[in-house]
């Protein structure tokens, strides 16, 4: 690549901490880059005005608000909870109240996304369903059936024509928005294991993202699990090339006992992941064309969710210590790790 490289210190710069007050499970930066939303185990969502101490509490869920999304215009905020409900909010309201509540799934809601055209909301949950909703009125538009385990995540392609979903067993499906037909099924089963010793399923598509050009899908989670109940396994990312149909696993130089909780694409040809577990917590960057990590930053606390802003100049990480940390990212690619 022709871009100059930057060192670790130069590529990230701490740009604020936001103390929610309970362990965080989710975070989202709004499309305008004005606000950061954090979801905590206290069942609250807090909206922070980035760069200031201004905060507003969004109270409505009766369980953990695991999935957060903003519409493309930056006017509506959608939250999905383990209470099986989707809630519509005025993203900028000075005193936020639920505008609409939808009993959306029979079981936890684990993923929510808004389409780029501002028409639809997609949700995914433990009832093995992906559902499409009207952003305008909350009406159910389409129900997508085919997953055979809990659906962990959902994302739209940039053209809004396809919705991508990933489940507990690492099955990644692509669905046509127009008619709900499943047009592709991809194998990320490396992110799943049935642990015969503990007699339980472990893994899942913890992170899911589609690249800005629509060519790549990344699914992230844990692999090589040797002890499900102690969380002994390695963080991993599966990268799918939707054009060629090929896939490969993005690796770390040293196997980290951890989960890659969130993944996203960066316009500099990078893949960015939030990794956390017994082996530590890291912000990790891969070259989209490479296989092993390009760069990583050790984080001060376990981080279980991540959000890049629309310009990819800032990243927010949701901490187990109840603090969301924002880092400003460099304009050039980071220097490869030593």
């Amino acid at each position: 690549m022709s871009e100059p490289e930057q060192t670790e210190a130069a590529w990230t710069e701490a740009d604020g901490e936001y103390a929610h007050g309970s362990p965080l499970v989710s975070c989202r930066i709004d499309p305008t880059g004005t606000y950061l939303f954090t979801g905590g185990t206290d069942q609250r969502i807090v909206r922070w005005t980035l760069g200031s101490d201004d905060r507003a509490d969004f109270v409505g869920h009766e369980s953990w608000p695991w999935a957060l999304a903003c519409d493309a215009a930056g006017s509506t905020f959608i939250s999905g909870g383990y209470d099986e409900r989707l809630i519509w909010w005025d993203l900028k309201a000075s005193e936020p109240v639920p505008l609409r509540e939808v009993q959306a799934h029979a079981g936890w809601i684990r993923g929510v996304a808004c389409d780029p055209q501002g028409q639809l909301v997609a949700s995914a949950g433990n009832d093995h369903r992906v559902k499409l909703w009207s952003l305008a009125d909350g009406a159910l538009v389409r129900e997508l059936q085919g997953h055979e385990s809990h659906v962990y995540n959902v994302a739209f392609t940039p053209d809004g024509q396809t919705v991508v979903s990933g489940d507990l067993k690492g099955v990644v499906r692509e669905w046509q928005v127009a008619d709900g037909v499943c047009i592709a099924e991809r194998d990320a089963s490396v992110l799943y294991k049935y642990d015969g010793g503990f007699r339980a399923d472990i893994g899942g598509t913890r992170g899911l993202a589609v690249s800005a050009d629509g060519r790549y899908v990344a699914a992230s989670g844990i692999t090589n699990v040797s002890n499900a109940f102690a969380g002994v396994g390695n963080a991993a990312v599966v990268l799918f090339d939707r054009e060629s149909g090929e896939s490969r696993v993005l690796k770390l130089k040293e196997d980290l006992r951890a989960v890659c909780w969130a993944i996203d694409f960066h316009p500099l040809g990078l893949v960015v992941g939030a990794i956390s577990g017994g082996g530590g917590s890291f912000l990790v960057v891969w070259d989209l064309q490479g296989e092993t990590e390009l760069w990583k930053l050790k984080l001060p606390q376990a981080s279980r969710a991540m959000s890049l802003d629309n310009t990819a100049r800032r990243v927010a990480l949701a901490g187990y210590d109840g603090v969301a940390r924002v880092y400003r990212l460099g304009e050039a690619r980071p220097q490869p790790a030593a």
Partner: peptide, 17 residues
């Protein structure tokens, strides 16, 4: 009935078990 020793992912495993 096995197993409930959920040091990791307690909530997912309790749903399953």
């Amino acid at each position: 009935h096995s197993n409930y020793d959920t040091h990791n992912e307690n909530f997912n495993f309790h749903i399953e078990q």
